[in-house]
């Protein structure tokens, strides 16, 4: 790993105030992405993948509160920075693409003008040149006939094409970090492969670090250099991709792998994961939030775990890991 990561998240904790109690959505989440690498954050719904991304981008729901931690983008702590400071880097240095491209785009403006907006705002492109540069960007993301497509509205395009437009917008200012939140959920596998290839190729061209959030373990296996596994707001394992699949150490990681259809020879061989996520509103949340579902639970699992470092080779948050 290189010395200075493009993005370093350390001990990030987030809670949500709701009428029925405070939800401990994230607790001491740490990870780092070096320049030019792809980090996948995987986990089931409710594990805190998206909340992590939203907290780093400063677009958390008003009910959410960051209670601890830092997110270093170069020399700037995004979590401690003023709104102006964050606005200055968001879109330029760190960009995000969202799950549903059709709802993330403005439905009543042409895609060309939406890309031009970003160029003017973030890439210091003169207003007159922006429409032309928008067409170039559409070409870069592999849209055929970009001049005509620039005049199209989002509803006139397929889901795959809308996602390409989102990528063009996110990469307009050549950011150093891209966060892609389930960028291909809802797209066909063939389109998914094309979009992931595109993100990978563009990231390589500009040496961008990519954080790729997905629930699809197989997709993460194929695309990421390193994988962070989350469960109930905790990072429970963080390892290089090949290492994680060859030797998963956290019992939950092993169960997730065993539940992925790709791995099994027959339906009976697929293993379900017993239990469900704990209620994160509970006051007496155990230090290990997997303990109540865990087949390898021991007495000392109820004791507090030391916080995991952000830059490890292979970190596992478990007292009784698989070897």
């Amino acid at each position: 790993m290189t010395a200075v990561p493009a993005l370093l998240v350390e001990n990030l904790s987030v809670e949500f105030r709701t009428r029925s109690g405070t939800v401990q959505a994230l607790e001491r989440v740490s990870f780092a992405v070096p320049k030019g690498e792809t980090l996948a954050i995987v986990g089931e719904s409710g594990s805190g993948k998206s909340v992590t991304a939203y907290a780093v981008m400063g677009i958390l729901d008003p009910a959410g509160k960051i209670t601890a931690g830092r997110a270093m983008l170069g020399g700037l702590d995004l979590l401690a920075a003023t709104a102006d400071q964050v606005a200055a880097v968001r879109g330029r240095e760190i960009a995000m693409i969202f799950q549903n491209p059709r709802t993330a785009l403005n439905p009543i403006r042409t895609v060309g003008s939406q890309i031009a907006d970003v160029l003017i705002r973030h890439a210091n492109v003169p207003r007159r040149e922006a429409p032309g540069r928008a067409v170039d960007l559409l070409r870069d993301v592999g849209i055929t006939d970009p001049a005509r497509r620039a005049k199209a509205y989002p509803f006139e395009m397929s889901g795959g094409m809308c996602q390409r437009v989102m990528i063009a917008i996110a990469l307009a200012a050549k950011p150093s970090v891209l966060i892609a939140d389930e960028p291909t959920t809802g797209l066909d596998v063939t389109t998914q492969a094309v979009i992931m290839d595109l993100i990978g190729d563009l990231a390589r061209d500009i040496g961008m670090a990519t954080i790729f959030i997905t629930h699809d373990l197989a997709l993460a296996a194929q695309r990421a250099d390193r994988i962070v596994v989350m469960h109930a707001g905790h990072v429970i394992e963080n390892a290089p991709t090949a290492e994680l699949f060859a030797r998963p150490r956290h019992p939950y990681t092993a169960e997730l792998i065993a539940a992925t259809p790709d791995a099994a020879a027959s339906l009976a061989e697929l293993a379900s994961i017993p239990g469900s996520l704990p209620d994160l509103r509970r006051i007496d949340l155990p230090p290990c939030r997997y303990a109540e579902r865990c087949p390898r639970r021991r007495v000392d699992c109820d004791a507090e775990l030391p916080p995991a470092p952000a830059i490890p080779e292979h970190v596992v948050a478990c007292r009784n890991p698989l070897s």
Binding site: T144, A193, D197, A218, Q222
Partner: peptide
């Protein structure tokens, strides 16, 4: 289709990439 489906076991080298619409 089969090549495009991600798999835990291969990194997708040498697969057919579908181009165009």
């Amino acid at each position: 289709l089969v090549d495009a489906a991600p798999s835990l076991h291969d990194r997708g080298a040498g697969r057919i990439r579908l181009q165009g619409e």
